[in-house]
Amino acid sequence: MARLTREESQALTRERLLAAAPQVVAREGYEGASIDKIADAAGYSKGAFYSNFASKDEFFLELLERHAGQDVVEIAQLLGDVSIPNDIIDRVTEWAADKASDPTWGILPLELFRQARRDSIFTARHANLFREQWRGVGALLMPLAPRWPDADHELLGAMVLELTYGAASAFNQGNGPSVGDLVRLALTSIHLAYGVPSAS
């Protein structure tokens, strides 16, 4: 097996650190998620962390940016070969139920946003991250609702993502409606209300 170059090794270390962080943040909160704990969870030393990131703030803002973009990519891949509304609803519902099964992904952005605002490291770019995500997901769902106002892609995407990552989903434990139930109901209702082109 060929040895990794220095650049490849550094990139791998960086990826492993970023991959380990969400679980640490979900368990410890932002304040408790120390560099030592993140590095240890990834199998590295604090020195390896600082070889890749200038500060904890820089690290977590990069993590936030990565998280904010991944849902659009995942849903686009799921819907790539689908055009039938019921199939779109089925796939997005399954995706939402799977995401909600791991509360880490609901806790992580809340912790990062709270800390970023408190420490004044929250820029206009970061403020728009999740709005861009909502717009991206909403655009992917437009085949369900051809009469939905084009300007409101953001509202449609926000509805699905906020139902998916809502804090209550982590405490459902099988009692009451699940995230999948809520997303399916919302998308089905939107399709019924906006899915049939109006008569000219």
Rank of each mutant, 00 (worst) to 15 (best):
M1K: 06
R3W: 00
E7S: 06
S9F: 00
S9A: 02
S9I: 02
A11S: 09
L12N: 07
R14I: 02
E15G: 07
R16S: 06
L18D: 05
A19W: 00
A20C: 01
A21G: 00
P22K: 09
P22L: 07
Q23P: 01
V24G: 08
R27S: 15
R27F: 15
E28S: 15
Y30C: 01
E31Y: 00
G32F: 07
A33W: 04
I35H: 12
A39I: 11
A39M: 10
A41N: 12
G43T: 08
G43L: 13
A48D: 15
F49Q: 14
Y50V: 14
Y50W: 12
Y50P: 13
S55C: 05
S55F: 08
S55R: 05
K56S: 06
D57M: 08
E58T: 03
L63F: 10
R66L: 05
A68C: 14
A68Y: 07
G69S: 06
V72G: 06
V73W: 08
V73F: 08
E74H: 03
I75V: 13
I75S: 02
A76E: 14
A76C: 05
Q77W: 01
L78N: 04
G80W: 04
V82S: 03
V82M: 03
S83N: 07
S83T: 14
I84Y: 07
P85L: 03
I89M: 10
I89S: 09
D90P: 02
V92F: 09
W95G: 01
W95H: 10
A96R: 03
A97I: 04
K99Q: 14
A100G: 10
S101M: 11
D102M: 09
D102I: 11
P103T: 11
P103V: 13
G106V: 05
I107R: 10
L108R: 07
P109W: 15
P109F: 08
L110I: 11
E111W: 11
R114Q: 13
A116P: 05
D119L: 02
F122V: 03
F122G: 09
F122H: 10
R125A: 11
A127E: 15
F130V: 04
E132P: 00
Q133V: 05
W134I: 00
R135C: 12
G138V: 15
G138M: 12
L141T: 08
L141M: 12
M142C: 05
M142P: 10
L144A: 00
L144E: 01
R147M: 12
D150Y: 13
D152P: 03
D152S: 11
L156D: 11
G157Y: 14
M159A: 12
E162N: 05
T164P: 07
A167C: 03
A167N: 11
F171H: 11
N172M: 07
N172G: 13
Q173A: 13
G174W: 08
G174I: 05
G176A: 10
S178F: 05
S178V: 02
G180K: 04
D181K: 02
D181A: 10
L185M: 12
L187V: 04
I190T: 11
I190L: 08
I190Y: 05
I190K: 02
I190N: 01
L192R: 13
A193K: 15
V196Y: 06
P197H: 09
A199W: 14
A199S: 15
